[in-house]
Write a protein that binds this DNA or RNA. Sequence first.
DNA 1: TTGACATAATACCATATGGTTTCATATAAA
DNA 2: TTTATATGAAACCATATGGTATTATGTCAA
Lengths: 107, 107
Amino acid sequence: MTRPDAVQPVFRALADPTRRAILSMLATGDRPIGDIAAKFEMTRPAVAKHLAILKEGDLITVEAIGRERINKLNPAALKTAQEWLNHFDHFWDEKLSKLKQAVEEKK
Amino acid sequence: MTRPDAVQPVFRALADPTRRAILSMLATGDRPIGDIAAKFEMTRPAVAKHLAILKEGDLITVEAIGRERINKLNPAALKTAQEWLNHFDHFWDEKLSKLKQAVEEKK
DNA sequence: TTGACATAATACCATATGGTTTCATATAAA
DNA sequence: TTTATATGAAACCATATGGTATTATGTCAA
C-alpha cells in the first residue's frame, strides 16, 4: 500500500521536464551526475538540484563508488503515481456501468 | 497517440495536492466552482486558478449552464500521464529479461 | 427593472522554484 | 605529496506559483 503523503513528492518530482528526461535517461542505465549534466544545457549544480528532488520522491537512489556517485532509477516509486491514476479508471468504470444500468432500466 | 508536448501541462497540473483533490472530487460528479471552493480552505479565485491549470492540461472541461459553469472530469487526459509512466514498465521488463538471460547463459 | 447570485477579471503579495557563480571537499593518479 | 577530477555546498537572482482582496460581468427571479 502506498501512503497518501508519499504521492506528493513523487508528482512534484515528475512535474519538471528535465527531471522526467533524467528518469528516461536512467531507465537506459545507471549514471553519475557528470554524465547526466553533459546531456543538458545547464550547469551541474542545476542538475544536482533536480537529482535531489528526484531523491526526495524516492524515484532514484544513489550509490557512492570511490569519488563517483552513481544515480539509479527506482521504478518502484513510479508505482505510487500509477496507483493514484488507476483510481480514476475505477471511478470511470463505475460511472460507465451505472450509465449502462440506467439505460437498461429505461428500456 | 499522445503528443510529447501534451505531457507537460498534465504533469504540471497533477503536481499540486489541491488540484489532485479537485480531480478526485470531480470523479464523483460534475460540480460548479462554488461547490468546489466550499470544500477547501481557500478563496474562490484561488480555486479558479487551479481549475484554469487543470483546463490547460485538458484534465477538466467546462460547460456553461445559465449562470453556472459546470466543471467535469476528463479522464482521457489522465491517460497521457499513465502512458508516460508505462514506458518505464517496458524498460524495466526488458532489463529483467536481459538479466535473466545473462543468468541463464552463465549456468 | 431592480436586486441577488454565480462567476470572471484584475491587481497585488510572499514564497517556491529553477537557474547561476563561486568556493570547498574527497578520491584517484602523477 | 602534488595535481587533477568528481562531486557537494553556499550565496544569490529572476521568475513562476499559490494565495489574497477588490472590482466587474452576466443571468435569474421578484
